[in-house]
Nucleic acid binder design. Structure first.
Lengths: 238, 238
DNA sequence: AACACGATTTGAACACGTTCAATATCGAGC
DNA sequence: GCTCGATATTGAACGTGTTCAAATCGTGTT
């Protein structure tokens, strides 16, 4: 059973630390070429041999920098994450209201993801495998996840919203989960320019705004308590 | 771009209709062997050659019945679905309360899935790819999905719950989506005997019960309207 | 200049998923 | 019993992801 013994493929997976400037250039050349070919030909029709040939390096060299075809996706994923962080700076610096901040962050996410849509399905598919380093709960993507959750914490912290005290520690993680849900929808979104995803994000952010406000209503106290207890349990289990 | 032109791999994908009893036996032999090997060796370490050898047929013969390694997973998925439908008959015939019915159906789901856990990750991973026939929104799995949603409709219809009129048409689909979410958790669940998943299902079903009751409270009318409008839009987009 | 040594690069080799033309098997109709 | 067509089965071949021992490069040291 390859559950108890994690497959070699996903073990450790330390990429060699690129040590020289030349190496760094080669690495980036391969990554850019891969990105272009994925875009032009799609994931399946792009081969490691094709990437190597197009980049003008040998097959083995590509594997020196990326220990698998999937790890190229992981690198691209990390890159898109950087882009998103950068794209958020504007709204986070200027907007004050919780809703506007969250709207801005979500729109930035969809904007920065746009160019990856044609092969994002693969990203999500490999990410869904519990043993994949791309899976959001894995060790390998922990750094990105932490940064991402911190981003949502910043959305909350920098806003004027009056968040109930008990909700504060949970909210960033919840928003992160929510944003993963939106991405899941986006991956499957076939509407022109992914308009449906933008609309869904806009509407759900409004909804979240209402929910956060409602959380203070006394009538909902028992429900809120249930949800809180549940979150605690999930956290304990994971 | 392999998005506009669906990959050959996932196109049509008509399995040859098995015409003779002998053919049917061979098909089942291969499927059983595959299931056993996936369980014993895991997904990656099980090869099509290994399955064919263990089943005593040729490699090509295995491909005659299952056009890809993934389609074996699809067949196993369909099988587990059958098991779940059967396992639900009891509760659905005897229980009256909405909560108890939903609890029973969810518990049956986790029970019937249990034996597939060691390689369920792959199932979910391939299912997450928008172009995979395993993906719940795809044409290939439409039959299973429809049956599954009908099951949740039956959960509602056979219960004494007083569901608000406007919620009735949406509820089965919502419950189906919810149950997919639980499965997603289950796939990643590493607790002994997947106890965390059982607990999560139990707690969330209670929560859903409360939510359904709350949906009648006048104060929540605007929120409920928003959610409804949103659901309508999502449906229109998909 | 020669050397050492790690970083980088190469290409051949392997195992696997998949395809396919060719062959074998079987049952129905004569 | 024989033939024919559909069904079932075979195994060789292809392209792909991945591994690895060997070759090469670059740089600091003697």
């Amino acid at each position: 059973m390859d559950e108890s013994a994690p497959s070699l493929r996903y073990a450790a997976a330390k990429q060699p630390q690129v040590a020289t400037a030349k190496g760094e250039r080669t690495r980036e050349l391969i990554l850019e070429t891969a990105l272009r070919l994925f875009y032009e030909r799609g994931w399946r029709k792009t081969t490691m041999r094709g990437i190597a040939a197009e980049a003008g390096v040998s097959l083995g060299n590509a594997y020196y920098y990326f220990h698998s075809k999937e790890s190229l996706i992981q690198a691209i994923y990390a890159q898109s994450h950087e882009e998103h962080m950068a794209a958020c700076q504007g709204v986070l610096a200027t907007e004050i209201s919780f809703g506007a901040r969250l709207q801005g962050v979500m729109k930035a996410k969809l904007d920065t993801l746009a160019r990856y849509h044609s092969f994002a399905g693969v990203l999500f598919a490999t990410a869904a495998d519990p043993r994949s380093p791309l899976n959001p709960w894995s060790e390998a993507s922990a750094a990105v996840r932490r940064q991402s959750i911190a981003l949502f914490a910043e959305v909350v912290a920098g806003s004027d919203a009056r968040i109930p005290k008990w909700l504060r520690p949970e909210l960033p993680g919840l928003l992160w989960t929510y944003h993963m849900g939106i991405i899941l929808f986006w991956v499957h979104d076939r509407s022109p320019d992914r308009r449906a995803s933008y609309q869904l994000a806009r509407r759900t952010v409004e909804l979240i705004n209402q929910l956060v406000a409602l959380a203070r209503v006394p009538l909902l106290r028992p429900l809120v308590q249930s949800v809180l207890a549940l979150l605690g349990e999930i956290r304990a289990a994971a």
